[in-house]
Design a protein around this nucleic acid. Structure first.
Length: 803
DNA sequence: GATTTTACGTA
DNA sequence: CGTACGTAAAATCT
């Protein structure tokens, strides 16, 4: 059946989808309201304030392709070259656009975008207005296809904003006017004049953005915007050669330094720019007050934070990111002006949401995080070497054993010259060996839902299960190999010329920049974060394994304190469990935390103040004396698992018990601690009414995913996890600004701070840490409390003892 | 060579 | 049907 354009003649908006589906084919209506995509489209339109009666609706292809596979209409797998049969439909689409003359066409999904604007990357193109390549002069705005939104519900928010933007632009057929002036050909003399103007006459903040060359992160373009409509890009390096003589460049930098030291600054991910400016030019940027990435993180933590994304939802400017390589100066000027524009919108949003406190709290963390990145951490080369030797020896022993038992050469790393050998670290080869050659009962990965396809696995969970059920040392040896090879990756690392490793701490959570072919680009698809820092490889100082928040204990031993210092670690005790206990008003647990506050370890043990013993005791209804080590462990695991709503399967795995017993344990726990389920109910109600949760510091998070169990679990974790994250980061920045000159912070590990303490000044350091870390919290129902801190010391990061 | 998948380290 | 994060190495795609 041929499905033609439907809708209200005279409508100013035309929606163009991909091809009719099953139901459309039967009913003759594109995006039939009963079909999944049609019903999602209706939800999107209504959230954007319109309905399908305000639109003309059509598809690129007018007939359902066989098997619903759109690739049927194309000559290439990427669906860019249409077959003749589709060319006829495209011609019809063109005729319809010319006949109905909509003011704006919305391209839903990549096929429509490919046909209408010759760009099939929706992630890159969406949210911007283009002139159609199919119908010259026609305005087009691409966004996600409703079916895609169906699969990835978090895209709903963005798609609605895109439609709203299209509605705003539907009052006339003209392309939006671009009133920005982007200066890219300014002489040195004019530039210095401009810098002087900024310094002496311009009153407002300025937006700054540097472009850098990799490797080395050298600044080739310096960008400044003094308003959302005026930006200046100035080139310092061209074709990898300095544009100016040393003296002239020095003169420029002197003026720049003065500007950057004096003006209030706006930046997008200024963490990167300020690190480079400080490392290469000694420029400090004391008034860097406004970061658009931080602002977006506190306003919309669940959405992307790249400048291209922010500009698409905050501004009505043309798309410019694709010019980064063809015209890097124009691109940079676009970056700075748009950063300025985005800041103005986000500033208003911060005020509207009343989250100035969280914004400033995050801005305060940038300097300490930059300091940590620049400072790095020294590796003890001798220890590193001895660890490597130790691991190699152990690996060799297991290699021999495994080769003998299998009667086959065993290797731990891909090696094309050894065709008959089996690589234990290859999931595929290992699966073949175990499940085909040795005919062992296949193990499947745990699935998130039953509809997912079953997949073979050779992960540790599967191997340890096999080791328990089948009496054969091979499984434990394989596990050993995998563990040792993994450990080796943390030890066999390159260090800087000074023998250090560096990490980039990301205040806004997930990494936002990545290096690609020597260019630093925005990471488009990672946009999570619960307010904790993440740690990743530094592009500026790329030494070490990158992430310093996941180093195994054994590998930590190669990080030793410098002469005259010791590692001192300050840890929030049971932090998340304390937050949960107060949130749910678990009076028994609260009493334990209260009584043990400030007591040393021995004292707590003497008085039996142990939260896990309490859990076990309450669950089993036995006196404290009868809680053995084993029973306490059960209490500990159950407490932990239930805090995050884990199921019986996980509990059974962790305690190595049959599923039935795990179920009974959970039942026992919930019978004795009914408050937990009640709290989960309250969270569910909040999510249903506003989709928003607020942690104890006022940090808000909107949960935009589809309302299901996975979203709920994520939500249950939010308040304890993000509150502890904010608590520690508040303490860390307080320490940095108050004691940073006397004591060096070394590491941040989510609920712990590490510092170097001079030998003989341990108590002084502890007092400083206590001063900044003991912060009073107020639970949601108004109870005030403080999470206790414990301290450990050691010569190396890996060997620390509680004191 | 680029991208995706699998596995696994930490709090 | 713990959550959050990041990286290494293998597998797969183009």
């Amino acid at each position: 059946m041929i499905i033609n354009t439907v809708g209200t003649p005279g409508a100013t908006i035309m929606l163009v989808g991909e091809a009719p589906g099953e139901q459309e084919n039967r009913t003759g209506k594109p995006f039939h309201p009963g079909a999944p995509a049609g019903s999602t489209l209706d939800k999107i339109l209504s959230s954007a304030g319109i309905s399908r009666h305000d639109c003309l609706i059509t598809n690129v292809a007018r007939e359902k392709p066989p098997g619903n596979k759109i690739a049927f209409y194309f000559k290439d797998a990427k669906c860019t070259i249409p077959k003749d049969i589709l060319l006829k439909d495209i011609e019809k689409l063109k005729e319809d656009i010319l006949f109905y003359k909509p003011n704006i066409v919305i391209a839903l999904g990549k096929i429509a975008a490919q046909v209408l604007i010759s760009n099939s990357s929706i992630t890159e193109a969406r949210g911007y207005i283009y002139e159609s390549t199919l119908v010259p002069g026609q305005k087009v705005l691409p966004t996600y296809h409703p079916q895609k939104v169906n699969y990835e519900w978090k895209l709903f928010f963005t798609t609605v904003l895109d439609i709203r933007k299209a509605v705003k632009n539907s009052t006339s057929p003209e392309l939006p006017k671009d009133d920005r002036t982007l200066i890219t050909n300014i002489s040195k003399l004019e530039y210095i004049e401009y810098l002087n103007y900024l310094l002496y006459e311009h009153k407002e903040a300025i937006a700054v953005d540097i472009e850098t060359l990799q490797p080395g992160s050298h600044i080739d373009i310096m960008g400044i915007a003094d308003s959302p409509t005026h930006g200046v890009a100035f080139e310092l390096i061209k074709d990898r050669k300095a544009v100016y003589s040393e003296n002239k460049e020095l003169e420029i930098w002197q003026h720049l330094t003065e500007v950057l030291n004096t003006k209030e600054l706006i930046m997008q991910n200024g963490s990167y720019d300020t690190t480079v400016l400080y490392l290469h030019h000694g420029i400090y940027c004391p008034k860097f007050y406004y970061d658009t990435m931080v602002a977006a993180h506190v306003c919309w933590p669940e959405n992307p934070r790249s400048l291209a994304y922010l500009a698409s939802i905050c501004l009505n400017v043309p798309s410019w990111k694709h010019t980064s390589q063809s015209d890097s100066l124009l691109y940079n000027a676009g970056d700075t002006t748009n950063t300025y524009g985005v800041w103005k919108v986000l500033k208003a949003e911060i005020e509207k949401q009343e989250i100035e406190y969280i914004f400033n709290h995050e801005m305060n963390q940038i300097e300490p995080s930059v300091m940590l990145q620049l400072q790095g951490l020294k590796v003890n080369k001798e220890k590193q070497q001895s660890l490597l030797v130790e691991i190699e020896e152990e690996l060799n022993t297991v290699q021999e054993t495994l080769s003998k038992t299998l009667n086959r050469e065993v290797i731990f790393k891909a090696d094309k010259s050894k065709k008959d050998a089996i690589n234990i670290n290859s999931p595929q080869q290992l699966a073949n060996l175990l499940y085909i050659d040795l005919k062992i009962k296949p193990q499947y990965k745990r699935r998130k839902s039953v509809s997912e396809e079953r997949k073979l696995t050779t992960n540790e969970e599967a191997l340890s299960k096999l080791a328990r059920t089948i009496d054969n040392p091979i499984f434990n040896n394989i596990i050993k190999v995998k563990k040792l090879s993994k450990l080796k990756t943390f030890i066999d690392i390159t260090t800087s010329p000074e023998g250090k490793v560096h990490t980039s701490y990301n205040v806004t959570g997930a990494t936002m920049v990545r290096e690609n072919k020597g260019f630093v680009i925005d990471e488009e698809d990672s946009f999570k974060s619960f307010g904790r820092w993440s740690s990743s490889k530094s592009i500026i100082l790329p030494y070490g394994s990158g992430n310093l928040q996941n180093i195994p204990k054994k590998a930590r031993t190669m990080y030793t304190a410098p002469e005259g210092y010791e590692f001192l670690q300050a840890d929030y005790m049971q932090a998340e469990a304390v937050v949960v206990a107060y949130e749910i008003s678990d009076h028994k647990s609260v009493a334990i935390f209260k009584q043990s506050f400030g007591l040393p370890k021995e004292e707590r043990e003497k008085k039996g103040l142990d939260i896990h013993k309490l859990t076990a005791r309450t669950m089993f209804g036995i006196p404290m004396e009868e809680v053995t080590k084993e029973i306490r462990k059960i209490g500990k695991v159950v407490k932990h698992a239930t805090n995050y709503n884990a199921g019986p399967g996980v509990l059974a795995h962790k305690l190595q018990l049959p599923l039935k017993e795990a179920k009974e344990l959970l039942k026992k726990f919930h019978n004795t601690t009914p408050q937990l389920h009640l709290w989960h109910k309250r969270i569910q109600q909040q999510l249903q009414s506003s989709r928003t949760l607020t942690n104890l510091f006022g940090r808000k998070h909107r949960f935009l995913g589809r309302y299901n169990d996975s979203l709920l679990r994520s939500a249950y974790a939010y308040i304890p996890q993000s509150t502890v994250g904010d608590l520690l980061n508040l303490a860390l920045s307080r320490f940095y600004y108050k004691y940073g000159k006397e004591r060096r912070i070394i590491l941040q590990l989510h609920d712990a701070i590490y510092v170097f303490s001079p030998l003989g000044k341990r108590q002084e350091t502890i007092d400083m840490l206590k001063d900044v870390m003991l912060i009073e919290l107020t639970s949601t129902n108004g109870i005030k409390y403080t999470i206790d801190v414990d301290f450990s010391v050691g010569n190396s990061w890996g060997e620390m003892e509680e004191i």
